[in-house]
Design a protein around this nucleic acid. Structure first.
Lengths: 136, 136
DNA sequence: CAATAGTCTATAAAATAAGTAGACTTTTAT
DNA sequence: ATAAAAGTCTACTTATTTTATAGACTATTG
């Protein structure tokens, strides 16, 4: 399951995607519209900024905005930035790999099954973009 | 990510799958071979028994064993018994569904993307069985 | 220079996961 | 019968992660 934090991040990004090209959006506006606790949202947006997909502006007229077109940012990328692994077990994660202590990956049946699961998931999450998250 | 508990469960089930038809297997044996803390393993096996895929026998010569052929038990079933949802968000889970507070599922883009992800994952996890987890 | 709005540091509360201890029950073999 | 084996049950404890909050600080604008 995705953490609440990751879900908040995706909702916030969806909102920003809908406002792409319209200048900075207030944290407080996103918080209200998407019902995300504002302080928690602050840290999430900051993380996304440090991850390179958002930019911000301080002072009056400031806020957050997407750095690239929503079409250019995949869900896989967004999830990894705040939520970590997409794979179901560490020994099968591309971006957060950790070796299994007690099993040989070459012969481990669980490993094989999880690789396939990961690939199937990624095939979708790397095709879907933030554009798909815009409210209609 | 699957919890450690779920991973332990799958490893234990893989071990039992390899011994299918050979009578009860000691908890302590599984614990040693699969390096799973024995007390934790006890609770996991009990849960799997209550879930209907394992049976146990007490007393000398006792232990745990699979109730059906390893081929008959899918990974999806095993994961759900101990680990809960396979879907990435609750509003898209078949077995652990929870309604979203603030979004309409019919129009929510995230919902759509997650339904597809879930289906892709399930397609694999419902095909793979415990047989695949047997050490070679 | 005052108001606005994001940033940083620090912490706290809540939930979940992981693991342990020990008494209890059932079964088997002697 | 009875002792040993082996799973069961109840009740904790500890650790980790998640979620959330407070408040001071910094940058920008008019």
């Amino acid at each position: 399951m995705l953490s609440k934090k990751t879900q908040y991040a995706l909702k916030a990004l969806g909102y920003l995607a809908g406002k792409f090209g319209e200048g900075p959006v207030l944290i407080s506006e996103i918080s209200k519209k998407k019902k995300i606790p504002i302080k928690f949202l602050e840290t999430i947006l900051l993380e996304l900024k440090q991850g390179g997909i958002l930019e911000s502006k301080k002072g009056k007229g400031g806020g957050y905005y997407l750095l690239q077109s929503p079409k250019k940012i995949t869900l896989a990328k967004a999830i990894r930035l705040v939520g970590g692994p997409i794979a179901l077990i560490p020994c099968v994660s591309l971006n957060f790999y950790e070796k299994c202590k007690d099993c040989d990956e070459a012969t481990c049946g669980l490993n094989k099954a999880m690789v396939q699961t990961r690939d199937a998931t990624l095939k979708i999450l790397e095709k879907k973009t933030l554009e798909e998250l815009i409210d209609r």
